[in-house]
Lab assay of single mutants.
Amino acid sequence: KLATQLLVDLAEGCHTHHFNSLLDIIEKVMARSLSPPPELEERDVAAYSASLEDVKTAVLGLLVILQTKLYTLPASHATRVYEMLVSHIQLHYKHSYTLPIASSIRLQAFDFLLLLRADSLHRLGLPNKDGVVRFSPYCVCDYMEPERGSEKKTSGPLSPPTGPPGPAPAGPAVRLGSVPYSLLFRVLLQCLKQESDWKVLKLVLGRLPESLRYKVLIFTSPCSVDQLCSALCSMLSGPKTLERLRGAPEGFSRTDLHLAVVPVLTALISYHNYLDKTKQREMVYCLEQGLIHRCASQCVVALSICSVEMPDIIIKALPVLVVKLTHISATASMAVPLLEFLSTLARLPHLYRNFAAEQYASVFAISLPYTNPSKFNQYIVCLAHHVIAMWFIRCRLPFRKDFVPFITKGLRSNVLLSFDDTPEKDSFRARSTSLNERPKSLRIARPPKQGLNNSPPVKEFKESSAAEAFRCRSISVSEHVVRSRIQTSLTSASLGSADENSVAQADDSLKN
């Protein structure tokens, strides 16, 4: 292990032709098999893994070397290190390495390699500790012929580059190093199909959405987006994914797998022009299946994007999809995704031109529960009313008269009656009930004795009459309010007539 670390330190600071010789020695160290011998017992696995620490030291050392060589000349050094790393990870899946030390190597290698970024000039870069990406002036992410390196360097940008540029090249004859992302992409596909350690798979799935944002990485080298989509959909639809995973937390289920895969599918929607129609349908189907899991909100957001990006695919699945959405409970976490999906859909009339009455009724059935102001915040309630109004205007004229009683009944049950079921009123009724029952229970537990009763009969009569009056008032709060309003209006009217009579009498006395 110490000798391997010494080789790594020497290679990191070497800029001459001896660098390749040092890498040859490190490569021989990495070539050791990580498969346990067949006769190895389970209690000896930890000791055997400790004997392979030099392999881990070599791989982690290459990660440090690549981070240094990416910004220094010659660029061919970075290319050689990158290829060695990718080849080593491929061996893991070729020979099915399952030892804990092998999983640790893959975890740290993917953690580093999935941080690679590219700008519009195809320059590769890595983020620093502050998250700012520094791009290399010597390494690009696409394949290029050595003699055409300078031509590639002087080509115009596709868009303004992001991030601070690296140091300027030493001279005009500098050759750019090619670090094609397709090599890593193929290893990522192998990981999605064969990885057995949940920690490694979770890391890859968590980092892929951010990497897919940099389309330069994908399009400048032959990366098959179709295969990526197929691998992701197979993970969700195939039963073998959960069987092969180990190291998963207790209670791990298909729902947890959906939570990890759906963000990658959402990021892949922007590549729909490069996906086969069959793959697009598979993607939409997987998102529909996710509606029954805890990732339902993410799936609804993804389907909203699909309705804009892939209208030809979503239009066929939309009638059944809208009916499925009615089975989702009206909760605060689902309110905004569902209502925004319906609001977006209302502005795309070509998608729902074939809707029948059942689909329009489903839209109103989804939106009406969110009009309850005692359960949802003001934004959700306003958005629900907006969706109902928009869809009522957009639905066909023959359907409107049939939906009017349905909508008014839903609004009455969710908006008007919600004020009668407020917690304050319920607590008031509970308190009044307890007050009504309390005197009775006290009389049963403690019967009054005439000799020891010091309270006069008049006081008892007053208290009983007050309790009886309170019971009468607490029967119905709404009736009490109505009666008080009527009494107030009658009182004001009587006072007004009394004032008029007094004024008339005063005038008569003055005349006399």
Results as ranks from 00 to 15, higher is better:
residue 51 S to M: 09
residue 52 L to Y: 07
residue 53 E to G: 09
residue 54 D to P: 04
residue 56 K to V: 05
residue 62 L to E: 01
residue 62 L to Q: 02
residue 64 V to L: 11
residue 65 I to G: 01
residue 66 L to G: 02
residue 67 Q to N: 08
residue 68 T to W: 03
residue 69 K to Q: 04
residue 70 L to A: 04
residue 70 L to S: 02
residue 71 Y to Q: 04
residue 71 Y to A: 03
residue 72 T to Y: 06
residue 72 T to H: 14
residue 73 L to N: 09
residue 75 A to F: 07
residue 77 H to D: 06
residue 78 A to R: 01
residue 79 T to G: 08
residue 80 R to K: 08
residue 80 R to A: 04
residue 83 E to D: 07
residue 84 M to C: 06
residue 84 M to L: 12
residue 85 L to M: 04
residue 86 V to N: 04
residue 89 I to S: 00
residue 89 I to M: 09
residue 93 Y to Q: 01
residue 94 K to G: 05
residue 94 K to T: 12
residue 94 K to P: 01
residue 95 H to N: 10
residue 97 Y to P: 01
residue 101 I to Y: 02
residue 104 S to T: 10
residue 105 I to P: 00
residue 105 I to M: 04
residue 106 R to G: 00
residue 106 R to S: 00
residue 115 L to P: 04
residue 115 L to G: 13
residue 115 L to S: 10
residue 115 L to M: 10
residue 115 L to N: 15
residue 116 L to W: 04
residue 118 A to Y: 02
residue 120 S to D: 07
residue 121 L to K: 12
residue 122 H to W: 02
residue 122 H to K: 05
residue 122 H to L: 02
residue 122 H to T: 03
residue 125 G to Q: 02
residue 127 P to S: 06
residue 129 K to E: 15
residue 129 K to F: 07
residue 136 S to Q: 02
residue 137 P to I: 03
residue 138 Y to V: 06
residue 140 V to A: 05
residue 141 C to Q: 02
residue 141 C to N: 02
residue 147 E to L: 07
residue 150 S to F: 10
residue 151 E to W: 08
residue 152 K to R: 12
residue 152 K to Q: 13
residue 154 T to R: 11
residue 154 T to M: 11
residue 158 L to T: 10
residue 161 P to A: 11
residue 163 G to Y: 13
residue 164 P to I: 12
residue 165 P to F: 09
residue 165 P to G: 09
residue 166 G to W: 10
residue 172 P to S: 08
residue 173 A to S: 15
residue 173 A to H: 08
residue 173 A to V: 10
residue 175 R to M: 13
residue 175 R to G: 12
residue 176 L to H: 12
residue 176 L to Q: 11
residue 177 G to E: 15
residue 178 S to F: 09
residue 179 V to H: 02
residue 180 P to L: 02
residue 181 Y to C: 03
residue 182 S to Y: 08
residue 183 L to S: 12
residue 183 L to W: 09
residue 184 L to A: 09
residue 189 L to R: 01
residue 189 L to V: 08
residue 190 Q to N: 11
residue 190 Q to F: 06
residue 192 L to M: 06
residue 192 L to Q: 00
residue 192 L to H: 00
residue 195 E to I: 00
residue 195 E to D: 03
residue 195 E to M: 00
residue 198 W to H: 02
residue 199 K to R: 13
residue 199 K to N: 09
residue 200 V to Q: 00
residue 201 L to Y: 01
residue 204 V to L: 02
residue 205 L to I: 03
residue 205 L to M: 04
residue 210 E to K: 05
residue 210 E to N: 07
residue 213 R to L: 05
residue 214 Y to G: 04
residue 215 K to R: 09
residue 215 K to H: 06
residue 217 L to N: 04
residue 218 I to E: 02
residue 219 F to P: 02
residue 222 P to S: 07
residue 223 C to G: 06
residue 223 C to Q: 03
residue 224 S to F: 06
residue 228 L to M: 08
residue 228 L to V: 03
residue 229 C to I: 05
residue 230 S to W: 04
residue 232 L to I: 06
residue 235 M to I: 10
residue 236 L to T: 05
residue 237 S to R: 10
residue 237 S to H: 11
residue 237 S to I: 14
residue 239 P to L: 06
residue 239 P to M: 10
residue 239 P to H: 12
residue 239 P to V: 10
residue 242 L to I: 10
residue 243 E to F: 05
residue 244 R to H: 05
residue 245 L to T: 02
residue 246 R to G: 08
residue 249 P to T: 08
residue 249 P to H: 07
